[in-house]
């Protein structure tokens, strides 16, 4: 198990290095940042001076090595716009984002796994149909539409919930629902399918033949097998949320998070912030995926023993 965990972490590190490399080269592809940031009205001498100052006159491979060195000394430079260290800027924004992601994930797990199990057991009754209809509707509504409806009803008409910022617990309600809506719908469907799949397996018949009730069989024999499928879906979903879901939700609710920061720094061509922000998000995604991989091995002894 420990050997397996070490391998998972080693793999994550290699992936991380690949991401850093991609981020570096992709930002260079877009051209010389000086031309975008300063624009017209600068003399050739001043331009050359700036190039030297930012190290942009050096060969690409040397720039890349300097970029990598930043990870050693923790020096990622200053924001073009704010003139503050990017590490500081990103750190300020990362925590609110993680809070939102955490509450969204918690809500998803609390709702969708029980709902999925109910939908599987009650698949022939109206209850199962109702759950699946809700899941379908949830899946079909884009998050920005959901957010607009929530704001219209709970903020504009009822005046119950605040729309902007992250000051109190009440501020979390609408962004969390918006963020997790699609994920709840998707995971409910996946949980139901995984459960149905498991319910038809031979070992569930064995459990019945042993004299276990449907419920005992389900919780002891079914859920753990189903969790293997469910876990992999959670891993994918979280990656998707951190990468894109957050951006939309934070923009709508003016949540001072990293998604909002990334969009703004991209528009302002604030490359240092953009680079470091993307890297920070990918670290979060890689961490979650590594945790899912380890949980996966915990749930499935075949993986644990085969790969150890």
């Amino acid at each position: 198990m420990i050997a397996y965990a070490v391998r998972v972490i080693a793999k994550a590190l290699v992936t991380f290095l690949a991401i850093v490399t991609l981020v570096f080269f992709f930002t260079r592809i877009t051209g010389n940042p000086i031309d975008y940031v300063i624009g017209q009205g600068i003399t050739q001498e001043d331009r050359a001076l700036l190039m030297t100052y930012f190290g942009l006159d050096q060969p690409l491979w040397l720039q890349y090595l300097r970029f990598l060195r930043a990870f050693v000394d923790g020096e990622f430079g200053l924001s073009f716009v704010e003139r503050r260290p990017v590490t500081e800027i990103v750190a300020d924004r990362l925590w609110p984002s993680l809070q939102l992601l955490g509450s969204g994930l918690a809500l998803t797990l609390l709702l969708s796994i029980p709902l999925g199990i109910v939908a599987a057991i009650e698949r022939k009754s109206w209850i199962g149909n109702a759950v699946m209809s809700f899941a379908f509707i949830g899946y079909a509504i884009p998050n920005f539409v959901l957010a607009t409806f929530l704001i219209l009803i709970f903020a504009y008409w009822l005046n119950w919930l605040p729309v902007v910022g992250n000051g109190t617990a009440l501020h979390f309600i609408m962004p969390t629902i918006t963020l997790s809506g699609v994920m709840i719908a998707a995971l409910t469907r996946f949980t139901r399918n995984a459960m149905l799949d498991v319910l038809g397996q031979d070992y569930m018949r064995t459990a019945r033949a042993k004299g276990l009730s449907e419920r005992q069989g389900l919780f002891k024999h079914g859920l753990r097998n189903a969790s293997i499928t469910i876990l992999s879906v959670i891993g994918l979903q979280v990656a998707g949320l951190a990468a894109s879901g957050n951006v939309v939700v934070e923009a709508i609710f003016a949540w001072p998070g990293i998604g909002d920061l990334l969009v703004r720094s991209a528009i302002q061509r604030d490359y240092p912030v953009l680079q470091f922000g993307v890297i920070a998000v990918s670290v979060a995604v890689l961490t979650v995926n590594a945790l899912v991989d380890i949980a996966y091995a915990y749930a499935d002894p075949r993986i644990r023993l085969a790969r150890a």
Partner: peptide
């Protein structure tokens, strides 16, 4: 019936690999 299954009447199935739960000892 549940009190009888596995107790007074038990059953062995054809495929022992799939009839046992893969994730339990």
């Amino acid at each position: 019936m549940r009190a009888i299954r596995g107790n007074r009447i038990s059953m062995v199935f054809q495929e022992p690999m799939t009839s046992l739960n893969p994730v339990l000892t």
